[in-house]
Design a binder for these strands. Structure first.
Lengths: 235, 235
DNA sequence: ACAGGCGAAACTTTATACAATCTTCGCCCG
DNA sequence: CGGGCGAAGATTGTATAAAGTTTCGCCTGT
């Protein structure tokens, strides 16, 4: 397969090799293919993408700014390992921001957007039926990103992309059960509220949705982090 | 003069040359010494800070991610020129986030923090009395950052630092009057509400404060941007 | 005189080479 | 046999050089 795309009129990362690396690593992290704490060597990634260390370094720095990669001086880049305190901050921020985003998304509602949302719900449901937990987690995050895109606010979208990416790591580290099956129905309810332009209901549903996700987590104290590390190494 | 040796609350002066460049350029932009649209040549900045282009480029990329510098491919880095649409987004985000931040700051209130706030109000008042508009704008932004620091939420702090920096550019581009004198009293009132731990009042005051700042702006349509460019070139 | 194109200079972008630092593994000593 | 010291290897941080692109001036042709 020819990996290099010569010219793509509608692709934002047409000749942006840094963007391709960033998106690739981000996707790997969001799909839980790269686990927290994993070393991200510059040569290693450079070989994979056929790029020089300069470009890899740029991409890793951007990811560090987004909070999903942590760079330690003279040690290298690693997939971030959010602490329970980080997790609480992330969900608190989401509880504050996302209801507001839904409100503005409702202002921009259109048949085309409702179609996109409905299509997304279908995808989520299919992944759920397949029992594909990896796709399910990814799609669950994409739903929230979709709502943010719908609002048309680039700042909200940027903030939320960062929060979603960190949430993905948090859920991987701290979820109690392996079944994140509760989310789909919530998403459908939120879409229904968006369709009827019921701002109050949509905001309330988003809030309770986030609360339930956080309630599924077990945010132990930071001192017990090694415990989870052993868990990951065993798997 | 000796602006670079000044110690900043969150500035790691431990041989972090990239951070020094970033903080220096950020300060220059926040103090309105660098105007929107100004070209930020890599050699130029590198000479100023005695650093190689590699480090300058890293700093500029971070600033671009924060939204106060825009990088155009094969053209270079420029001080960002927020559009009126950007301005509306920034203030909308601030109206959503900052009342929430104040609430959490009140949870963390302590005599030491109240001292810091009071000291800041004094500084603001002194700058105002001096008629030092440049310091006044800078201190006005720092007040909001101080509240975010007080909340202890690193995510909120990061978001707000970005929003404040962009607000500084927006105010420079779109303010109607040259007298931003209204802000100080609002800040004092907010501090008073924080002192009495009155969350509802503090949040409401913050909201109306932001509304008044935005009301001072004249957000014309993007087509008239050239007008302002001529303005800048004249000055 | 003016429009259009050619060319050089300056800048950004990318790659590579060098220096500094950390990690690791082996060896020696207690 | 265990622990600490030290050198080799590997990896990151930084600088410099090569390559590609844009821009601006200048020149020529009409």
């Amino acid at each position: 397969m020819a990996a290099k795309t010569r010219q793509k009129p509608d692709a934002p990362d047409a000749s942006d090799r840094v963007g391709r690396i960033r998106e690739g690593v981000t996707a790997a992290i969001l799909e839980h293919r790269l686990l927290p704490g994993t070393k991200l060597g510059e040569d290693e990634i450079g070989d994979i993408y056929g790029a020089s260390r300069t470009l890899v370094r740029t991409a890793l720095q951007q990811l560090a700014h987004e909070g999903i990669v942590s760079i330690e001086k003279n040690r290298g880049a690693f997939v971030a390992r959010p602490t329970p305190a980080d997790a609480r901050e992330v969900f608190e921020a989401r509880r504050l921001i996302e209801p507001g985003i839904v409100n503005h998304a409702i202002d921009a509602v259109s048949p085309a957007w409702l179609d996109r949302l409905q299509h997304h719900l279908t995808e989520e449901r299919e992944a759920e039926l397949r029992g594909d937990a990896r796709a399910s987690v990814r799609l669950s995050g994409e739903f929230h990103r979709l709502v943010a895109e719908m609002s048309g606010h680039s700042i909200y979208l940027g903030f939320l992309k960062e929060l979603i990416a960190r949430s993905s790591l948090i859920i991987l580290l701290y979820r109690r059960h392996d079944t994140p099956a509760c989310g789909t129905d919530h998403h459908a309810e939120i879409v229904a509220a968006i369709r009827t332009r019921d701002k109050a209901r949509a905001g309330a549903l988003m809030l309770s949705h986030l609360n339930e996700i956080e309630a599924e987590l077990f945010l132990k104290d930071p001192a017990a982090d090694e415990l989870r590390l052993a868990d990951v190494l065993g798997a």
